[in-house]
Simulated assay, not measured.
Amino acid sequence: MARYFEDTDVGDVYELDGRYDVTKAEVKEFAENYDPQPFHLDEAAAEDSIFGSLAASGWHTASMCMRLLVDDFLEPETSMGARGVDELRWIQPVYPGDTLRVEVEILDKRISESRPEMGHIRTKLTGYNQHDDAVIEWKAKGMHRRREADE
């Protein structure tokens, strides 16, 4: 069922069902392509780093959480993109073998003044590992289709 602008209220928290299993191969592949720092690529170098072992890039962590958000929260018929992300924080490293999940909180919302078919929803996404430790957080400015504008 599509989630329109009107279907959310400030203060709502959505615990998404999806899970993302982090693999060593994917950590290394992402790092090779986008963040080739030694602690993301080389296990020996990672052991001598502050991480103590191979760790996922923060950008990779954000991408994995974005995948969960798209799969379980953003609907193709109602999501209209985003105007940006604020306050991105990498709270704790993510390692191969971790399993990620996501929660989304509605912080505020308003109807677009220039596009009545659209509403702006500011959310806080928090990503957690399998121990329920927060690993990432950001606030986003999403654009969502309004049901009432269609009626």
Rank of each mutant, 00 (worst) to 15 (best):
Glu75Trp: 08
Pro76Cys: 07
Met118Trp: 11
Phe51Asp: 00
Glu43Gln: 09
Glu87Val: 02
Tyr4Ile: 00
Arg110Ser: 12
Glu32Cys: 03
Tyr95Leu: 11
Ser114Phe: 03
Leu16Arg: 04
Arg145Gly: 02
Met1Gly: 13
Met1Ile: 11
Trp59Met: 14
Glu29Ile: 09
Asp7Met: 02
His40Phe: 06
Glu87Arg: 12
Ala55Gln: 00
His40Ser: 07
Ser49Gln: 06
Val104His: 05
Glu137Leu: 07
Arg83Thr: 04
Tyr14Asp: 01
Asp35Met: 09
Ala55Ile: 02
Leu54Met: 05
Ile50Phe: 13
Asp72Trp: 06
Arg101Pro: 01
Val104Tyr: 09
Lys124Ala: 13
Pro93Asn: 06
Ile121Tyr: 06
Phe51Gly: 01
Asp132Ser: 12
Arg89Cys: 06
Arg115Asp: 12
Gln130Leu: 10
Ala45Asp: 07
Gly81Tyr: 11
Glu32Phe: 00
Val94Gly: 05
Thr23Lys: 09
Asp48Gln: 15
Ser114His: 10
Glu148Tyr: 02
Phe39Asn: 07
Asp48Phe: 10
Ala44Cys: 04
Ser114Asp: 04
Ala25Tyr: 09
Tyr95Ser: 07
Thr23Arg: 03
Lys28Gln: 15
Glu26Tyr: 11
Leu16Tyr: 07
Met80Thr: 03
Ala31Asp: 01
His60Trp: 10
Ser112Arg: 00
Asp17Ser: 15
Ser114Cys: 05
Thr61Gln: 04
Met118Val: 15
Leu68Gly: 03
Lys141Asn: 14
Ile106Glu: 00
Thr78His: 02
Tyr20Lys: 14
Met66Tyr: 09
Asp35Ser: 06
Ser53Trp: 06
Ile111Thr: 14
Lys109Asp: 08
Leu74Ile: 10
Asn33Val: 01
Asp150Trp: 07
Glu6Arg: 04
Asp72Pro: 04
Asp132Lys: 06
Ile111Ala: 14
Arg83Lys: 14
Ser63Arg: 02
Ala134Tyr: 09
Leu69Pro: 00
Ile50Glu: 11
Leu88Val: 15
Arg83Tyr: 03
Asp12Lys: 11
